[in-house]
Design a binder for these strands. Structure first.
Lengths: 195, 195
DNA sequence: ACAGCCATGTAACTTGTTACATGATTTT
DNA sequence: AAAATCATGTAACAAGTTACATGGCTGT
């Protein structure tokens, strides 16, 4: 319930109403994670239902502000203190795709790897450029967010390369002649992005 | 729709029925991603509703097998060919937590980072041990899956360290005296896990 | 008056997930 | 006969998401 907890965190700084929560959320994530307004209200309903927030009088008419209850503060504190444990770890679509691809007789797993790699490298380029050329207000939170995406994409690309290496090794005994060298050999992913 | 596509991929190799799909799925992911039986049936219903699969006669009584339709094969092919594009990128709970933490006046972002780092390093240790000491049948797909988790967790730890560095730099102008050295300084994350 | 924004909300849908119910067959 | 396993299914809920409806206020 990441969105709910985020809204709870914003409300814990100061009570506000729906639309401003959306704006605050998007400001902090630099517009990378747009939030539908409707979701704000449904999420607020759930938070109120669970006793984490309670409505207060808004500044102006037509504004329905909320404040965090004692229970809500406790839940929020726990969220900040306790690391997100994965048990089981969240299903990764890409990993599932690869696991299925290497078994499927009609699918060339190397093709899947190359397609995914191309997509990941493109995204990596986009976000690296975005970081190097930040739009308008540069924000620490925004920087951390973008760097997180870059780190994750780098890990993804390295994993795809490792997969290919394992596949080559797995099928090595099947070929008697040399295979064509992979098309992406000259392309290199920088290991470190941070200065 | 990762689960749905996975079941579709398994069915595309050979038609089967619900329970065996669950078993196949879990066999390929080595039990790391257990699949609730109920979800198999609801997912099969949705796949049938969308015209991607169609029921066929099962081998025995009480078994309701499915086969992939032409439409389903097309959808599956596209799934394998097209890289997962993120637009917008999926919301990461940890990143949201950090972004909220650095703004919140009552929360020490460093504490959050250290708690998350500890949890991530623990998981990293668990999965590294799991990889080094595989349970029963070692499988290429299982190996790739576990390595993916390791790569992602490594990226997470490195990102958390980068966050702390940025925080230290951000608040450097606020302190006049030296701060206590971080507790985790002797602990080192290996950059490369693969041989 | 009308266009546009501010602000709230609702209905519908998707995927994921759990808990439970049901019947058939097999084992003890 | 009771227990366990195989196999299918349903109900309900959580979280995310979109599209749409509504009403009030503001500026031209």
């Amino acid at each position: 319930m990441s969105v709910g907890m985020s809204l709870l965190a914003i409300l814990d700084e100061a009570p506000t109403y729906g639309l401003r929560l959306k704006q605050e959320f998007e400001a902090r994530t630099g517009g990378v994670w747009p939030l539908n307004v409707g979701q704000v209200y449904t999420t607020l309903d759930r938070l109120e239902r669970d006793g984490l927030i309670r409505p207060v009088a808004g500044e102006a008419e037509g504004q329905k502000a909320y404040e965090v209850t004692a229970t809500g503060r406790g839940t929020l504190e726990e969220w900040f203190q306790r690391p997100a444990k994965m048990d089981p770890p969240p299903r990764d679509e890409l990993v599932l795709k690869l696991v299925m691809a290497i078994r499927h007789p009609d699918v060339d797993a190397s093709d899947v790897i190359q397609a995914e790699r191309k997509g990941a490298v493109e995204l990596l380029r986009d976000f690296t450029m975005l970081k190097r050329d930040p739009p308008a207000e540069t924000d620490l939170g925004w920087l951390l967010l973008v760097e997180s995406l870059i780190f994750q994409l780098e890990a993804r690309v390295r994993w795809l390369d490792a997969c290919e290496a394992r596949l080559d090794r797995s099928s090595a005994h099947l070929r008697t002649e040399a295979m064509p060298t992979p098309a992406r050999s000259e392309e290199t992913i920088p290991t470190e992005v941070l200065p």
